[in-house]
Design a binder for these strands. Structure first.
Lengths: 159, 159
DNA sequence: TATTGTTATACTCTATAACTATA
DNA sequence: TATAGTTATAGAGTATAACAATA
């Protein structure tokens, strides 16, 4: 009952439904998942995760933070941060030190090796971003970032 | 030892690190996760999931597809689709019928109730999209969609 | 033997709940 | 009692593997 099958296209080529392709929300969701999985894969090949990068980035901007502060900044649970810091500390990239004023707290800081590694991880991020934005020309790349930032700031406060 | 604490801002206000806010890849990843969780929540309140909507949307565009075709189109595993179709069929929104030509196959189609429900789910999607794009003015909304689509098409083929 | 739909299993994340040591 | 960090547990989601029916 199928009228006029396409000549040389194999029937197994799955096309995204128009209704979903038309939805900015759907595109954004799928694109976000794609960039995330891509980032995870890229970091994985060198033994890291995007979270590792995020932790190092946070420490580079504000040194000597407590674990609770780091966790809140990244919006991850404190229990999740423990494992991340464990692996970073084992590699000598961060340093946990007891706060003498409140011995419950651990104050975390970046080691020189950690700062160097952060540079390498930044290269990974840049690679992912460049690949992501590849279909856009130079000037076109400025636009989505401004829009993304505006939308991100709004959703950050409204979700 | 903390020099000059800020006057009225509680110290518990977590700020996103500049380095991450500067990264389009990070923003896109987080934004995608946000819109996804928002969509899941919205659908959940009426007893559906974004997957349910996606399945109905696929069937609305090309009726009488086999389960394998639907699964491939949505890029979900065939085993995952089974449960989705089960719940949709229980509610009388889709119909599974054995293909007489190949009795292994199930040909799936939308019922009138399913088509009606699809309309209601579209309203949910629209609500999420409107909320997402709220910070952009009318003309600004056209831009990100074109860009998203371009990027999405590219990544679709290159990931 | 290969394929379709299905069911069962395992694995990864993440969210939550205890637990300790300090305060 | 409350809090910081830690550990343990449980749950959702997904990916993989086995399975029965049919080709």
């Amino acid at each position: 009952m199928s009228a006029m099958p396409l000549p040389h296209l194999p029937p197994a080529v799955p096309r995204m439904p128009q209704e979903l392709a038309d939805s900015p929300a759907f595109l954004l969701g799928r694109l976000g998942a794609l960039v995330k999985s891509r980032a995870i894969h890229e970091f994985e090949t060198i033994g890291f995760s995007p979270y590792h990068y995020a932790v190092l980035a946070v420490l580079a901007e504000a040194a000597r933070q407590t674990q609770a502060e780091i966790a809140d900044t990244l919006k991850v649970d404190r229990s999740q941060l423990v494992g991340l810091l464990d692996s970073l500390e084992e590699r000598g990239l961060v340093e946990r030190r007891r706060d003498p004023n409140d011995r419950r707290r651990h104050t975390v800081s970046l080691t020189p090796d950690g700062k160097a590694q952060l540079g390498r991880l930044r290269a990974v991020v840049k690679r992912v971003a460049d690949h992501l934005l590849a279909p856009l020309d130079a000037e076109g790349r400025q636009v989505p970032y401004q829009l993304l930032l505006r939308v991100a700031c709004h959703t950050h406060t409204s979700f």
